[in-house]
Amino acid sequence: MSASSPRSLHPTRLAESTGRAVVVFLVLPLVAIIPMSFSDTRYLSMPHDGLSTLHYWRLFSEPAWRDSLLQSVGVALPAACLALLIGLSFCLGAWQRQGNMVRLLQILMLGPLIVPGIIHAVAYHRALSFIGLFDSFAGTVLVHAIKGLPFVVLSVSASLSSVHPATLQLARSLGASPAQALWRTLLPQIRYGIAAGFIFAFVTSWDEIVVTLFITSRNVITLPKQIWQSLFLNLDPVVAALGSLALLATLLALLATSLSGSRLRSLPSPNTIA
């Protein structure tokens, strides 16, 4: 039945314009940082005399910013790998299992996503000091991996749910060993979920600030922590440059996924820092 309403209702119009205004409100701060990033002054302002790419260069030349960038990559890569290892193991093991137990374990795996960051901060501040990993590279990687774990579990189990339930048995009956069945039949089918989980875990670590503030001191200074520290001095336009680059990367990624079809779009949304 063709049921398009012929009558344009006034409240619907109002809702549509309010909705558009909300979307503008959502992107407003993201758009606002672009002109700020081209500021030609050392403090935050709109460009006065001309545009300048000064702050983009500072990002890669000033030691504090450059080192924090490198540290962030150095933490996020192993953290994402570790999260993937734990999350993938759990999902493969729990695949096709029913019952309250599995459900409870799944919720526990999502815990790091649900529990407020400040509680993690208190818990890990205490625990890492206790085992001597406070302000250490290893401790930071471990905590970031745990924070990224829920995203791996979410995206891998989402892609597992569309795999035929008898895949492994079928592969075994065709002569594959358990390991072969896993490696050659199951994993290829969920590779996009795995990739997505890895990306989310990486981004989570890359963005993580609340817990990092409480488990690090002078040794470990990730990029968000460097931003945080810089904000106590002044509103440095470097942050705007950094945000503009992140915006550019996100737009390119969104464009790529919408061009490459639906595969990568079926992903959970990332939860950055609260």
């Binding site: 039945m1 063709s2 049921a3 398009s4 309403s5 012929p6």
Partner: peptide
Amino acid sequence: KSTLLAILAGFAE
């Protein structure tokens, strides 16, 4: 036929 029905019901003009 369904279009005609929608017009009768007032769902379409």
